[in-house]
């Protein structure tokens, strides 16, 4: 995976990281670069500091510290020497580069009338390597199939960051679009028209409007578009049958999802939340769940062995008297919840 982001790195960083053993390079997930502070890398959900000789330690002393010059070169390379052309990205705090890799930035912000206008004096970078895992949704898809409408049920996928939500929805989009339904009963079904609203350019990783990841032949992508507006635009213009959205959470997102599901479109959305209980603490998600906008809720957890998922029918949540109490754990409703565990090795190709 290092090879995919190597072109972004200044020479000195690249040479250092290339000293990592081959399998480690393959599993690289994050590179955290902080000016004058130890270089940290993340792989398989763990993180280590990197020493000058390329070895990895848990303790930070003696680690390689990127200089101001290195950080400047890195910033130039990730912005294509044009920070001025990245105002929107700086406002959001990250840059998506070709290949779908997302680079988070931190530094001193510039305020304009109380709201953030950008970041200057950028001192920390977090390069997240995007990975396309074909078949990531194979275990999950059979659970989400709507047999009467021959499509997917509306689904909300919950997980904390770094658990593979985006990888999963990308693979769902691809499978639905190609018509690769992973069960025998669905084998004759056609592919569905898929619309993706890709606000962070992470799902499809579009470069000039053309997806660089394989998201299927019947997929339309609204790139770098605010989710709520993008959903409505796609519904009006491209008549999707399945809508895919990443990281919902604002009130207007909820509004748009409601509209789309009234139009008979299956919505597959992800949200940042540790689990269902956590999600119900967020008003927008709680409201959508209570209204029955989603048929299923999926929780993702990544463990040492792989990605586990747990599918919960959403009616079980909204029908229960405990649903209005955000403190009630969904696990307290064992009769209504039918859980299913799937397993996939994290380092599957």
């Amino acid at each position: 995976m290092l090879a995919r982001v190597a072109h972004l790195l200044p020479l000195e960083l690249k040479t250092l990281l290339e000293r990592l053993p081959e399998p480690m390079q393959e599993q690289l997930e994050e590179i955290r670069i902080r000016e004058g502070r130890p270089l940290e890398i993340g792989f398989r959900g763990q993180s280590r500091f990197m020493m000058n000789d390329g070895s990895l330690r848990q303790a930070a002393d003696g680690a390689y510290k990127p200089s101001a010059d290195t950080c400047r070169k890195l910033l130039e390379r990730i912005t294509n020497y044009s920070l001025y052309a990245m105002e929107e990205e700086l406002k959001r705090g990250f840059i998506t580069v070709s290949g779908g890799h997302r680079i988070g930035l931190a530094g001193r912000t510039i305020l304009d009338g109380g709201s953030v206008r950008g970041i200057r004096d950028i001192g920390a970078f977090n390069i997240r390597v995007a990975r396309e895992v074909i078949g990531a949704s194979a275990h999950l898809m059979p659970k989400l199939i709507d047999r009467t409408r021959k499509t997917l049920h509306s689904t909300l996928i919950l997980a904390p960051p770094q658990q593979g939500k985006t990888t999963l929805v990308r693979d769902i989009a691809r499978s639905v679009s190609y018509g690769l339904w992973p069960t025998i009963e669905a084998s004759g079904w056609q592919g569905r028209k898929v619309g993706i609203v890709d606000e962070r350019s992470e799902i499809a990783a579009c470069v000039r409007g053309i997806p660089t990841f394989d998201v299927g032949p019947r997929t339309d992508v609204m790139d770098a578009c605010p989710k709520a507006e993008g959903m409505m635009m796609l519904v009006r213009s491209m008549s999707p049958e399945v809508l895919i959205i990443d990281e919902i959470g604002r009130p207007e997102d909820g509004e748009a999802i409601r509209e789309a599901s009234h139009a008979g479109i299956s919505v597959v959305a992800t949200a940042h939340a540790y689990d269902l209980r956590d999600a119900r603490g967020r008003p927008v998600l709680l409201k959508l769940l209570e209204e029955g906008a989603f048929t299923y809720v999926v929780e993702l957890k990544r463990t040492e062995q792989g990605v586990m998922h747990r599918v919960v029918p959403a009616e079980a949540i909204s029908d229960s008297p405990a649903s209005r109490e955000t403190s009630a754990a969904p696990r307290s409703l064992p009769s209504a919840v039918h859980a299913w565990m799937g397993r996939r090795r994290a380092d599957d190709p």
């Binding site: 400047r72 910033l75 130039e76 912005t79 020497y81 044009s82 920070l83 001025y84 105002e87 700086l90 510039i110 950008g118 200057r120």
Partner: peptide, 10 residues
């Protein structure tokens, strides 16, 4: 200074 600051600064 080229390329490393916002538009106004440039």
């Amino acid at each position: 200074t080229l390329g490393i600051s916002d538009k106004e600064d440039q």
